[in-house]
Amino acid sequence: MDQRIEPAAADDDGWTVAGRRFRSRLIVGTGKYKDFEQTAAAIEASGAEIVTVAVRRVNLADPGAPMLQDYVDPKRVMYLPNTAGCHTAQEAVRTLRLAREAGGWNLVKLEVLGPPPTLYPDMAATVEAAAALIKDGFEVMVYCADDPVAAKRLEAMGCVAIMPLGAPIGSGLGIQNPAMLSMLIEQTEVPLLVDAGVGTASDAAIAMELGCDAVLLNSAIAMAKDPIRMARAMRLAVEAGREAFLAGRMARRMGADPSSPLTGLIRR
């Protein structure tokens, strides 16, 4: 008999975004992998039920080239199309209209970025694009700065998930501003996800311990030396972080407090 302990998430009832229920609290990207086989294996190991994808021109010179859909079945994991590379509201709307036609769904990830080296969310352009997308019937999960004022505005506009960065995209620097992230979690009624900046499992666990509904990451898995193993580490970290959040951590105290009773000690 397999005596393995069930994953901690067994009694976690999952989370809901835009009326859709998901059990996994980990969303993974599909970029930067060595090949499609590795992409598919990493997604499988991560347990993710949602994956982000980009929309690009087909290669007219190579129509027979393998496509992501041949390896990652959109019927098994939900594709969440992004607006990577779009710098204006108009480009974002055009891109996601194409994604909607390609996939037939309206749940999307909006990201409008500023220039390198930070690729920091351009909040003015993000707000404008969110308005245009919501008007066009999209359900917008929005990548944003950890800016409580902008986040509240996006939520009030009708965005279905608020997704602040933990650190710059692809930096792997972890949760750089946990205090502000806590305040964002506190003020947000729709799902709050950390999107970008996670570098290793403990970063994902910290985000979940603070009370995030889910974590979105890509590079931390794809750029690890063993992406499949890191995908599993991320699944476990997100589950562990969620369990720790639900358990409620002990209070911090300045000083020691012995774990063993001081009574009944043998004496000379």
């Binding site: 970029g31 992409t39 980009a54 929309v55 992501l68 909607r100």
Partner: peptide, 29 residues
């Protein structure tokens, strides 16, 4: 710059000067 619904591919005749974009999903974050 207007979506062509998939259900109408067979009846959408192209005109001279049309600008078409054909896209698909690729890996992304």
């Amino acid at each position: 710059e207007a979506i062509v619904p998939r259900s109408t591919y067979g009846e959408t005749w192209l005109s001279p000067g049309d600008a078409l974009e054909i896209v698909h999903f690729i890996g992304g974050g």
